[in-house]
Design a protein around this nucleic acid. Structure first.
Lengths: 231, 231, 231, 231
DNA sequence: CATGAATGAGAGTTCATTCAT
DNA sequence: TATGAATGAACTCTCATTCAT
């Protein structure tokens, strides 16, 4: 059986310097780019405070007055840098999306082959989620607050996975197949395992990743039988 | 917005034998069970209106006054049936969760073996999502509005999947392994494929399901190589 | 010489029941028409309070919280009847515009001939302005707050004057000429005399009206000479 | 927005001999007179920018930050030259009031007799208004922002007109009468004709002025009848 | 003189919920 | 049961003004 759902991405970056799709994003993060050092500090303080506040309370229960209080600045200062609550949320999502990518990416790049890479990415993602539950929550909520950012986040992640699969297939490491479908499937696995074993539970991640790796490598079929064909 | 139910019925039973967690839920659906025919009609109208309103606007932007307006009743009447905005949302999530299960369940039960069952469930789920995008959205948002309901929904789903895998493994249809991890992985795949190919896109679902079925059956490994062991 | 300026209309109603141009106005005054007696009382209280507040402070310095305080209702009640500060201001202008018309109209209708009618209207207007300085101010300010209402007010007034002149010319009571130009000229006279001798000063209105009547009847020319033609 | 002045010059002199009320005004125009060339340029830029901004948005919707942005200077620089938003508005109104006078005055001076002079003034005014709608608006709004400046503007204008009428009456060019009442009546006519046929419409100004000239010369009376006396 | 970040009081507006009818 | 007016706490956002650099 199968049911509904959604969540923050496993991601896994390309260390390569190729122009990221995000580079084409229309609006730069903060509505005002600070020109002085002082301004840069204030902006950073606001983003950090926002991550805390949104993570703890969710978008709607978060209050701008609380964000500025946490950041130690006046209410009005908020609007020097962001046009609205939505605007800072969006800036945050893009920021965090990048953080996930940057955290997970290196593990993947270091893996000897594709299957190992996916497992490494999964493990890194699980650990990241466990340490940054608020990030998971924030990205998830963007589905409702800023659908475009949400979609962008997952579309980018899937594209990176698909590119890796494509390359591996050409190298003969894995079988050929529709990379996009596979990428979304793998991403979904990662996200849900992250939810269950990263956010909600804290079972040993290695065991989880091992089991998932087996599934990814050989599927469910028993060595002897291959049920599907006979279905 | 997809056809909303025409009766406030609390959704149906599970084919599965496992005790439905929902049965233990503390709060009964509507805070007041109507005694007259007129009352029953009003309650039904409110739930239908709520499905539309929440589906279109999301929880926080949905307004009770809009729900009552859609339902054609006065503002005050709302509180005859529900104690709060959260209460009607919760009632709705439980209701919709049941609808998903009821729609997908039969396809699974009709399948000849486990792998076929998962593929059938996936296909049914994809079709359901495509026709009821607002339901997808509502259940998703419950992560923030009513986390218990959200967790319950996915935990129940995973439990059902795990039970099926367990049984299939005992029958020798599939390999042995940690059923819970596998169940969450499969559920994640389904959900994300549903998001990508059900909610956002409308590519032919059969192709998607076929590719996912192959992945589930045999994994990514190329017939010749088995990368993982060497990693 | 001649300079800038603007102000609230002299008006002068048609007692006749002919459909008023205002009847074609798109939006009805209050955004919600009360259905109960209690509601009607609250709406009236709000409008009265708004007239006081706007009259004393002007649009921008007026506060909705002050309006509701004066009316003796809660802040939120305001929004039951009006969508915004602008909305109640608009409703007020239309209301007051009607009041001016209703006050001045009868005097005009009672006059024996056209020149007497204009003088009577002028006198009535002067007296009205003197007693309702806040109304003068409110209508004036609508030029900036709700230009459409402002324009409507003066256009309607001018149309009524022009219609009277037209009729009088056909009766041979006055000379023929461009009624619209004449109407705006007369209205301008009335408004500025109202400003100078109604709002700012309180010289005997009868003397002012008498002098203005002479001007209207015979112009500036000296009985013997007629300068213009020779120019 | 019509060409704003190219220099912060405080407007010119009056041809009329009566003491200019503005000369007695308490506050000198800019709160600080620039000593350097650079300062003079900044001041000029601010006044020009203010004329645009106030003309387009009105006093309250105009923002100092917008004025400085248009002027191409930093926010803080504003306060080097003006003490407040009100202060720059006041400086502007006095400036513009002088512009109107300077534009209209010469036409009047050139006329052969009084009636011709009033018509010439009217025509000049109409043309001025048509080309400088934002000036019209700014002076008008001063009724609410800076009542003293508003009153001063119209009182001065009326005084100039009255002085002309007085002189013409003594020369026997026009009949005798209360000059102040006549002056305000004429000014009102001009202003409203300016509103209707200058700001709102652009019918041929000559026809408007001709009709108004007839009214001013002979009034409304038909050659044969003289209604008023019989009233 | 110029800069531009920081300020914070104050306003308008929303809407879930109550309650008298 | 149904109604719909009334409530008021709470929130987002504005912007004239200050001041350290």
């Amino acid at each position: 059986m199968a049911e509904t759902r959604t969540s923050p991405a496993p991601s896994s970056a390309t260390a390569a310097p190729q122009p990221d799709a995000a580079a084409a994003a229309p609006a730069p993060r903060p509505s005002k780019v600070p020109k002085t050092e002082r301004g840069r500090r204030t902006l950073r303080a606001l983003l950090n405070a926002a991550a805390e506040e949104f993570g703890e309370k969710g978008f709607h229960d978060a209050a701008i007055s609380q964000i500025t209080a946490r950041a130690g600045v006046a209410t009005g200062s908020f609007y020097v840098y962001f046009d609205s609550k939505e605007a800072i949320f969006q800036a945050l999502v893009r920021d965090l999306s990048g953080q996930v990518k940057d955290f997970v990416g290196p593990s993947i790049a270091a893996a000897p082959n594709q299957l190992a890479a996916e497992s490494a990415g999964q493990l890194a993602y699980l650990n990241f989620v466990r340490q940054h539950k608020e990030i998971y929550r924030i990205i998830d909520e963007s589905e409702f607050v800023d659908p475009a950012a949400y979609r962008e986040h997952y579309t980018n992640s899937a594209a990176r996975i698909a590119a890796r699969l494509e390359a591996a297939a050409q190298r003969g490491e894995i079988s050929a197949g529709d990379s996009e479908v596979r990428a979304w499937a793998i991403m979904g696995m990662n996200v849900f395992l992250g939810l269950r074993f990263g956010v909600w539970g804290d079972e040993a991640p290695e065991a989880v990743v091992q089991e998932a790796g087996r599934l990814l490598a050989h599927g469910l079929s028993s060595p002897s039988a291959s049920g599907e064909e006979r279905a």
